Simulated assay, not measured.
Amino acid sequence: MTVRYPDALSIRTFELKQRGWEQALRQAIRSDSYADMRWVVMDADAIEDAIKHEKQCKDSGIGLISLDRDDLEIHVWADNVYPATSTTRQLLNERAIESGR
C-alpha cells in the first residue's frame, strides 16, 4: 500500500553564489520538480552580469537577489509554481510531517 502525504510545506530553493550567475541559474532550474519558488542569490559586487541577462531568470521563473553585508535587493521576483509530485518533494513532505510530531 502506498501512502501519499499531503503537501505540508512550501519549498523554496536558494542558489547562493559569489559569482557565476549562469551556473547558479542552471542549478536553480534543476530544482523545478520539487520547489515552489526558486531564487539565485548573488554577491552584490558580482550581480551586474546577471542583471544584464535578467530575462533568462524571468523566462525561467527564477528570482534574482543581490546581497551584501548591509542590504538585500530583489531584482527579479520568482514565480510561484506548483511542481508535479516528485519523489524528492514527497520525501521532503514526509520528513516535515514526521518532524512536527
Rank of each mutant, 00 (worst) to 15 (best):
K52H: 09
D45R: 15
A35F: 07
L16T: 13
E54A: 10
I62E: 00
Y5D: 05
D49C: 11
F14L: 05
Y82M: 08
L25H: 01
A8N: 02
E22P: 02
W77Y: 14
E15N: 07
A35T: 02
A35Y: 04
L67E: 13
S10V: 10
A50T: 06
W39R: 07
R69V: 13
V81D: 06
I62K: 01
N80Y: 10
V40D: 08
H53F: 00
S66K: 07
R12Q: 14
H75T: 06
A50K: 03
A46L: 03
A78E: 03
L25N: 03
L72G: 10
R69C: 11
R30L: 15
V81E: 09
R19F: 09
W77V: 11
N80A: 14
A46G: 07
G20N: 00
L25P: 01
L9R: 03
K17S: 07
I62D: 05
F14D: 05
G63M: 06
E48W: 08
D79N: 13
A35D: 02
E15M: 12
I47K: 02
R12L: 05
Y34F: 15
V81R: 07
K58S: 08
K17P: 00
R26Q: 15
A35I: 01
V81L: 09
R38T: 00
G20R: 04
L64P: 05
R26S: 06
F14P: 02
A46M: 14
W21S: 01
W77C: 11
R19V: 12
S33K: 02
D43E: 01
V76A: 08
K55N: 15
A44W: 03
D32Q: 12
E54D: 11
L67H: 14
D59M: 01
R26D: 13
D68L: 04
M37G: 06
L72N: 11
R19W: 14
D79Q: 08
D32E: 15
R38E: 01
G63P: 14
D32F: 07
I74K: 09
I11P: 01
R38Q: 06
M37A: 15
D45W: 12
A28L: 00
I11Y: 04
H75A: 09
R4W: 11
R30S: 13
E22M: 00
D36E: 08
G61S: 00
W39P: 13
I62T: 01
W77R: 14
L72I: 12
S66P: 10
D45Y: 11
M37K: 15
A46I: 13
A78M: 04
S31Y: 12
R12M: 12
A46K: 11
R4Y: 13
I51N: 04
D70H: 13
E15F: 06
H53Q: 11
H75Q: 10
H75G: 05
D79V: 01
E48F: 05
K52S: 14
N80V: 11
E48M: 14
D7S: 04
L16N: 12
S60K: 02
A44M: 08
D7V: 02
G20S: 00
M37D: 11
A8V: 10
Y5N: 09
K55V: 13
D32V: 08
V81Q: 09
I11Q: 02
M37L: 15
E15G: 04
